[in-house]
């Protein structure tokens, strides 16, 4: 009986995992097929190992510069939300007055408003700031959209830290500001992991705002570059599309796999508090 339960558990886990992986495998197969391959012939799960697709895809799609743009936007935005967000969260968590309560509620309510709601009016502001087709402008937009959630996570986390450490530091002569940066900020690592995983991938993959604010080819981020590149094929040349998609996916998958341990832990801890 026990063995039967174990077997069925493992079988279902293997099935679930393959369900998650098979589409990736098929993308890989398509990306390695010869341009002229007739799909219905031979073993369709066996690719041709035709690597030229990757070279062609890389050269024709500007995906390289798009990856750099996405990276710049993501790092800038994450830097902003982690510094600004944790500072705001610190005052909210440590000083329970009416102003801070109001700020917290404002962020809490804003968490429920998706970015697309204010994107059109934001466009006019971005024109006035000369921020259209700039990486910093896009980073600021993404940071502002991610800020409510960041403040929420950090506030919950700072509340769980004992106040005594702050008080000890202040008695030792630290100002509030240095207390935060030297004592509290390093302790926020688990919350930062949650903030990075939940917002970072979303900013990296942002498409709904990129369509508005990154129209110039040299400033395209990954999804914007891919969609522009794919549209010119009108549904043909899947081998090139697939190869470019694989290139586009490599940085995120790589980052996820390298940091998966701390990221998954941060996610569970963050979700627990949330």
């Amino acid at each position: 009986m026990r063995i039967a339960a174990k077997i069925s558990k493992y079988t279902s886990i293997i099935l679930i995992c393959s369900l998650s992986l098979i589409p990736f495998y098929i993308l890989l197969v398509l990306s390695l097929n010869r341009p002229g391959r007739i799909h219905s012939e031979g073993n369709i799960f066996m690719p041709d190992f035709y690597l030229q697709n990757y070279i062609d895809g890389w050269q024709k799609s500007h995906i390289g510069s798009a990856i750099i743009n996405s990276a710049v936007i993501t790092f800038l935005a994450l830097f902003i939300i982690i510094t600004f967000g944790s500072m705001a969260a610190y005052t909210i968590a440590r000083f329970n007055n009416k102003v801070n309560k109001a700020i917290f509620w404002m962020f809490l309510c804003s968490m429920m408003i998706p970015g697309i709601i204010n994107t059109v009016p934001l466009y006019t502001l971005m024109i006035r700031l000369n921020a259209i087709n700039t990486l910093w402008g896009m980073a600021l937009v993404c940071a502002a959209n991610a800020l409510p959630f960041t403040v929420f996570i950090f506030t919950g986390f700072i509340r769980s830290l004992p106040r005594e450490i702050d008080e000890a530091a202040i008695i030792d002569g630290c100002s509030l500001f240095t207390t935060f940066w030297l004592i509290n900020f390093p302790l926020l690592k688990p919350a930062m992991a949650a903030v990075v995983i939940i917002n970072g991938f979303g900013i990296w993959n942002n498409y709904a705002q990129a369509v508005f604010f990154l129209q110039e080819r040299s400033k395209h981020n990954i999804p914007q570059a891919l969609s522009v590149y794919f549209q010119q094929f009108a549904g043909a040349k899947w081998h090139l599309m697939a190869a470019t998609a694989v290139i586009a996916v490599i940085p995120v998958v790589g980052a996820f796999l390298v940091f998966q341990k701390s990221l998954m832990k941060g996610l569970t801890d963050g979700a627990l508090k949330g």
């Binding site: 500072m87 705001a88 934001l122 940071a143 502002a144 409510p148």
Partner: peptide, 16 residues
Amino acid sequence: HTFMAVPALVLFTLFF
């Protein structure tokens, strides 16, 4: 401490 929330508030007010 009130100033520590200012950067976040400015960014959020302007862009959201």
